[in-house]
């Protein structure tokens, strides 16, 4: 049994994690949709190189990725210097820095489901839309996205859930500043270090529930689809 926490549990990390995951997901969709489309359609010889770079976060240890991001985004790094030149403050140990790091860390979890969905869809329908005089934006919204909707849902769920659960990269780039960079996973780690297991257990359970709620639509959708399929099949 875990003893009751000695202090009231701070809910700020919970809100910060949700905020970080939501902002990251919006940015990742804006980057991921065109990138995944390009990867699915291109015959460019550079495709494998771009695919490999975008998949690197899948295999790199979070601390390695976090270390490089810390170097690049820090006051001596070119990205950090450029950022400081425009905004007047460093990128590391800020919420914005966390968003940038999360976008890089979660990129493959958004791009790969989207790319797969675009590769599997019926390209003739896209061509049919174009020959019917529809613009590219209309074709993308009315023909491509409905066909790729399961891939888009998967990308949203995985992108969101993966950002919620990240630890190593966040710790390296954001540190542990309450209200600024102290996300749920960091707060749990801190509670464990302080031997406040009750608080750690409560926050852990919240993370489990949050991840469960994030993943549920994905599998519920799959179940509904299978049921619909059974209904139409003889």
């Amino acid at each position: 049994m875990v003893a009751a926490s000695q202090h009231a549990i701070d809910m700020a990390p919970f809100a910060l994690s949700i905020q970080l995951a939501a902002v990251t997901l919006v940015i990742l969709l804006a980057i991921g949709l065109p990138l995944a489309w390009w990867l699915a359609m291109t015959k460019s010889p550079f495709k494998p190189v771009v695919e490999t770079i975008s998949a690197l976060p899948l295999v790199l240890p979070p601390t390695v990725l976090g270390f490089y991001l810390l170097i690049f985004m820090g006051p001596q790094g070119w990205a950090g210097q450029a950022w400081a030149g425009v905004f007047g403050h460093a990128l590391t140990f800020t919420f914005t820095g966390l968003v940038v790091a999360s976008c890089i860390y979660s990129l493959p979890f958004v791009v790969q489901p989207l790319q797969g969905a675009f590769e599997r869809m019926d390209k003739r329908q896209v061509e049919a839309s174009l020959t019917l005089g529809a613009s590219w934006p209309k074709t993308f919204v009315q023909v491509v996205l409905p066909q790729a909707r399961h891939g888009v849902l998967t990308a949203c769920v995985l992108g969101f859930a993966h950002t919620i659960g990240e630890f190593g990269v966040v710790l390296m780039v954001g540190g542990n500043i309450p209200g600024e960079t102290q996300v749920l996973s960091i707060a749990i780690y801190e509670h464990v270090e302080a031997l406040d297991y009750a608080a750690a257990a409560t926050l852990s359970m919240m993370l489990v529930l949050l991840s469960f709620i994030a993943l549920l639509p994905l599998y519920a959708k799959g179940r509904k689809r299978r049921r619909q399929l059974r209904e139409v099949m003889p």
Binding site: Q125, A128, T131, S135, Q142, P146, Q147
Partner: peptide, 20 residues
């Protein structure tokens, strides 16, 4: 001219109807 600008009706082999 891109396909959108050409006054063409195209019936594909598998019809390519919008299933949704």
């Amino acid at each position: 001219w891109p396909p959108q600008k050409r006054s063409v009706g195209y019936v594909f082999q598998d019809y390519a109807l919008f299933d949704h």
